[in-house]
Amino acid sequence: MSAIIQVNGLTKYFKEAKAVDDLSFTVNEGDVYGFLGQNGAGKSTTIRMLLTLIQPTSGDINMFGMDLRTHRHKILQQVGAIIERPDLYRYLSAYENISIFARMSGLKIPKKRLMEQLELVDLANRADSKVKTFSQGMKQRLGIAIALIHDPRLIILDEPTNGLDPQGIADMRNLILDLSRNHKKTVMVSSHLLSEIEIIANRMLIIDRGKKIIEGNVQELFNPAKMIVELQTLNPAKTLETIMSTKWKSFVRSHEHDKIIFEMNKVDIPELNNELVENGVQVLQIQQRYSLEEYFLSLTKAQQYVATFEN
């Protein structure tokens, strides 16, 4: 398994502001690599540095075993990308758009192949329509067709589901899985939604304020033992007191307002519920939480929190 992207100590300053801070990670061949972070965490800046839109302040980027600075041309020939919105030449037709970008990739692609590609994203019947008449979803599909037309080894998608309807989001997921499983492509996909990454990615990187929080195998990171569970009761203060006197104390990660957050195994939830009820706690709700924010908290602050509570 060879590394497709290898990033080392990548840092970017915009004037005084640090957007990306000493970031290192590796994307291997065949990965669907999830790139997670809240808005403004530095995802887009990082992706733009991978695509040479932004110049790093320092650090190294190697792709396909080549230095991006010296082999930009060769590297970009093997990369397809959608960066945020799929902005295309609005005054040109779908066919003209795909034809232009195919040629910019340095390839002579016959018209038949271009039409097939449009067919693939269900736009063949609109090939001659101007892009300005397209819906957001159609533009997105055309963007994908363009990103894939030169048969790249690596596909980089920056927030590909932004602005899509539920059907569009589902289609996008299926497409990414299809590219990975059936076409052996390496995909790097950024998102601010943990749930999305959990479904499609095999490996992932989480960043916050430009810094790496964690990188690893999705299955390991989403280990059921480390499920984040949120408890809501009628009397949070009493509940907390009750819990702190039981074995469940060690699973508590934080509490806020009326909620208590546990990190625990999913299968233990019924037992927790029973015990609470037996102790007279009126449970309103117990549920899994996927908020990225919560997840970050759980990763970064949980231990710190427990420590302060115990003292």
Binding site: T52, K74, L76, M104
Partner: peptide
Amino acid sequence: NMGTLRLVMTKPVS
């Protein structure tokens, strides 16, 4: 303005 510049610049074009 159109947003096409960033797509163009991800192409292998100096």
